[in-house]
Write a protein that binds this DNA or RNA. Structure first.
Lengths: 223, 223
DNA sequence: GTCTATAGAGAGATAGAC
DNA sequence: GTCTATCTCTCTATAGAC
């Protein structure tokens, strides 16, 4: 892992991951487990099995590494969301897809990923922490980057034509809150329920969240 | 503000707040705006207008200060929640209160506070950040401290007798996620909606969240 | 591309005068 | 109870050998 100095530039490692990826994986995990500010590059590079100087060599700075982690996760996540939404729309033909299927495309990928060993597995927690504790550059990016949500606004507006635009935006906002919140505080939930509520089944959790969100989105509206 | 050395122990200041409170206020604000780890004691004491050494004198350590901020906010918040729930229960007599009123008691105080200048105004954000970025001691405390939620479990179980216990816990968990999420990412919501969605009215926001959460809690259940 | 060594800044905590 | 001065530690970032 610690490199040999052998091989050409960008040569793949024996384990199939180059140093950049190894660093990104470790950063995603550690930033998700604790906050960005509380993880040092020393700790991070040790966990990744690379040299301390490698982060600055490959990314330029700790801040730039954070942005890279974020970008990688966001791209993967939003591709998957878009794919699921496209499939739902194809199934529905000319009609808008059922709200339930739109919701599944919106919240499913992040929740499912948070319970697997994929690259996305920690992206949800990472997002929460980075948004709050990260550098201003990232916070601004998160505030401005809404392109990936536009297609969901469109889909929900078509599926819920009786709602004013403002209401659609608000309900979408709250729904994203449910998605983020669903994987936080699971320890507290286990304590509160005396161990009754444990996440054993990925799809069961997604179903719960989708049920809840669908109910919130389709709630009656009286101004 | 910077103290005069005059006066007896615990003497109130001219502005009515002693040093301890001034520090707690500044800490709550700064920890909420950025993360715990990224705010230095130097910055914090400067913002509070007290001496650098004051934090260690009054609280013992930076970690202990964080716990004190958390405790103060949690006590205030949960007293208010409990009061509202008690009132709703009194109004309902022998019957369980309407779900809507239980929800109002659960999520109202934190959201309302997040838009005022009270001591609680930043507690919501503070909670999110501290949970993730704070010291392990705090994280453990958050996981174990569920006493304040028990009365809400009881109330919801009575109001939603057709739901299995497990389902009640899960829906309560997701509802708390909505509450936390409602005040995050408001900048993104404004961007996404082209400025259409702004929080101008405290009560209007609470009403939106209560509507949404009530729908989620009362959604039909099919196992 | 990887590594060691270190510069330089900034952190939390404390001793001791007032 | 407040303040200055400072100790000690750790951090990010980089220069330069390999």
């Amino acid at each position: 892992m610690a490199g040999t100095g052998v091989g050409a530039e960008e040569a793949p490692r024996t384990d199939g991951k180059d140093t950049k990826e190894v660093i990104l994986d470790a950063a995603e995990r550690l930033f998700a487990e604790r906050s960005y500010a509380s993880v040092s590059l020393r700790e991070l590079t040790a966990a990744a099995g690379v040299n301390l100087a490698a982060v600055n060599y490959h990314f330029g700075s700790k801040d730039a590494l954070l942005l890279a982690v974020f970008r990688r996760g966001a791209v993967t996540l939003n591709k998957e969301r878009a794919r699921l939404l496209r499939e739902a729309e194809a199934r529905a033909g000319d009609q808008p897809p059922p709200v339930r299927e739109i919701v599944e495309a919106l919240v499913g990928p992040a929740i499912r990923a948070s319970l697997t060993g994929t690259a996305l597995s920690l992206y949800n927690q990472f997002y929460t922490l980075a948004r709050a504790g990260g550098p201003p550059e990232l916070r601004e990016m998160l505030e401005k980057d809404v392109g990936h949500l536009q297609r969901f606004v469109t889909a929900l507006t078509r599926a819920l034509p009786h709602l004013p635009a403002e209401e659609v935006y608000w309900r979408l906002h709250l729904s994203l809150g449910v998605q983020h919140g669903s994987s936080n505080d699971l320890g507290r939930l286990a304590t509160l329920s005396g161990g009754l509520c444990q996440v054993t089944d990925r799809d069961a959790l997604v179903r719960r969240v989708v049920d809840y969100v669908t109910a919130g989105l389709t709630a009656p509206f009286d101004p």
